[in-house]
Design a protein around this nucleic acid. Sequence first.
DNA 1: GATGAATGAGGGTTCATTCAT
DNA 2: TATGAATGAACCCTCATTCAT
Lengths: 218, 218, 218, 218
Amino acid sequence: MLANSETRVPPVTAAALDPRKSPRQRRSQATVEAIVEAAARILEGDGPAGFNTNAVARRAGVSVGSLYQYFPSKQALVAELSRRNAEAALAGLAQAADRTRGRSLAERLRAFVAFAIDQQGARPRLSRVLDQLEAGLALETDAVATAPAILALLTPVLREGLADDTPALEGVAGDCLALARTLIDRALDGGDVESLKVAEDRIVGALTGYLAAAGVAV
Amino acid sequence: MLANSETRVPPVTAAALDPRKSPRQRRSQATVEAIVEAAARILEGDGPAGFNTNAVARRAGVSVGSLYQYFPSKQALVAELSRRNAEAALAGLAQAADRTRGRSLAERLRAFVAFAIDQQGARPRLSRVLDQLEAGLALETDAVATAPAILALLTPVLREGLADDTPALEGVAGDCLALARTLIDRALDGGDVESLKVAEDRIVGALTGYLAAAGVAV
Amino acid sequence: MLANSETRVPPVTAAALDPRKSPRQRRSQATVEAIVEAAARILEGDGPAGFNTNAVARRAGVSVGSLYQYFPSKQALVAELSRRNAEAALAGLAQAADRTRGRSLAERLRAFVAFAIDQQGARPRLSRVLDQLEAGLALETDAVATAPAILALLTPVLREGLADDTPALEGVAGDCLALARTLIDRALDGGDVESLKVAEDRIVGALTGYLAAAGVAV
Amino acid sequence: MLANSETRVPPVTAAALDPRKSPRQRRSQATVEAIVEAAARILEGDGPAGFNTNAVARRAGVSVGSLYQYFPSKQALVAELSRRNAEAALAGLAQAADRTRGRSLAERLRAFVAFAIDQQGARPRLSRVLDQLEAGLALETDAVATAPAILALLTPVLREGLADDTPALEGVAGDCLALARTLIDRALDGGDVESLKVAEDRIVGALTGYLAAAGVAV
DNA sequence: GATGAATGAGGGTTCATTCAT
DNA sequence: TATGAATGAACCCTCATTCAT
């Protein structure tokens, strides 16, 4: 019942969100995978509601005990999901950056956006719910900070668009990310696929407009 | 522990979110006000965590029973908060629209954004948390739909920027709203006040870019 | 949710079940009537669930305060309902007894049963629910004893069927009453009307058999 | 305070009354037993009042959580109690039927009644309270239908008493059951033991009379 | 007398987490 | 290591009853 996200949060240190132990053995690897996938599936199917550790364990065909063997808390599980999401994003964006090295910023942005739409589109609801959950986490912990690595990747790309002096760029990359996420979420909600192409154009438009106003030439 | 946002939401009909009875007497008016304000304060202070009906009642200096006399459920309370938020937004935007009648779309957008920054800035965390909560609600119910009235206000303004034929505009206004919300939230998080002026520029930039790509001349 | 009948019952004295004050004025009479009727209607419509003082008051078009002005407790209200039920029964049975004075016990029983079916049939669900509620009350208080007056009416009738000596008859009349109530309830549940005539026969049969075994010639 | 029996019963499907999971391990078996027994004892001691899940758990020396691990709701617990009751009854009646195969219907009825008195007599108050609770349940759900298996057992026995053609017998067995239950309840209330023998006679008498009127020769 | 706002103890239920086996 | 039974704090919500107006 609209039950609180993040209830009774005890002082959560960043460490507490790390997976408890990296599974060495093959079997445990499989267990961890099963858990993570189960969590994803439940989140996709039921949203935050119905996402509870017992359900995840059951869906994973594993005992709660095992879940807690690998994830010290429910938050840690969410964090892992986010981490994976971010990693995939990072990889894809890095590749896109590579592939478009030397091209215009506009083209690069479009490549980024295209990739992001693809990725979020693969499991749309999951992405959206994770965004939400991360928002919740961020409010409390800031532990899963918006994937600093992604920012680190984006910032230099944007810098190319800058005149020779170096005005501050912090925040700008983050804004771009947030902006794109929001619009992609909405586009995916819209449903039809051809609209995605349209959305891509508009998102690039928004980014371009934003960056121009931020002093970054596109 | 990261307990689910929106758990076990039963088939929530729109009706279920309406305040239970409008307080006739003076005394009850005060009670309702106290409850709503307490809810807002708790949401601001603790986020969704710690936002529970007993706490709200206690903070309001009222019994839980009274709370439930006016709000049939916790959700209804959130809905009321949202409603008020939306109403204030609507009023402000309407005024801004009036004041800028006849001006260029760009100017009007800037007026809208300026107002929104002001409004959200008044209780920044509250706005953000409500956004989150509404997102949760929307996922389940769509009952508190993103203030259709606001969309209704925005759409004709945007239409002015259109060539004489009428391409679809649905979604566009919503995207603009979401985009602005996101960026404003982030700007308010940034902290310093002068950055708000900067943010305003950039948001208008993003909107302009978005709209241009959507075929709306700014 | 299967919430307890008779929760938190404080030491209920018989007195506590009496209506608080007999309404002298015409207006209050009407109020009391409205309350009692509302209670009956709710019991009929929703069963014990949904039978709460606030609902009764609302349905009666009266404030809770007024309800408590005339009935010191919810129990008292139920008691009143029972009392009225019992009174009507008593009147009808007395009349039947009169009308059949001098006839055979069998005939008189049939007359009683016929009347009871009629009466309970008038508001079948109400009767059944009241039976239930009374059972609950009896378990706790014994205050609304099964209408001793009715027993007092029945006993001498049965006594006629006795040989000249006087074996105990206590309990017998009560059993007859209970037996008839149960079967009538079931018959009324059955639904169709013609079955009622059949039921009448069987109930009389059961009573006859019971009494014969109890040494009462029919 | 005479708080409603069976309040707010939501659409209870039959499934919702089934025990949640059958305990595999020895330990949990004991837990379930403890819970069921505690429930019975509380019902016996305090009646429906005081029968709440927390109390049951406490009395069972177990946490509420455990209770809900095995029973999805309070109702389910009642249902289980009923089920056990009905099962015991069924077993005993089946045995009695076997033992008296070939005898006269009268003798068989007496055997049934004797067994029922014994069984209900073992925990008289419990039986009575359960009857009441079941009545409540039935009004709402009909899920725990009066042990259709028992009816299935009784019906053919009664059929023996029928002339060769087959008039409807539905309802008849149910009436017999209800009739016997009622009278046994009352007899057990009476208190003294020798009265039970007397009661037996009378109950058989009532059944005989009833059946005769229903066209079943005894 | 009447009103209805206010009270708050009470009760059903969930779920993150632990720990004996 | 895995299991899953057990825990219990927390939370939502109801309703009999009171009392200021």
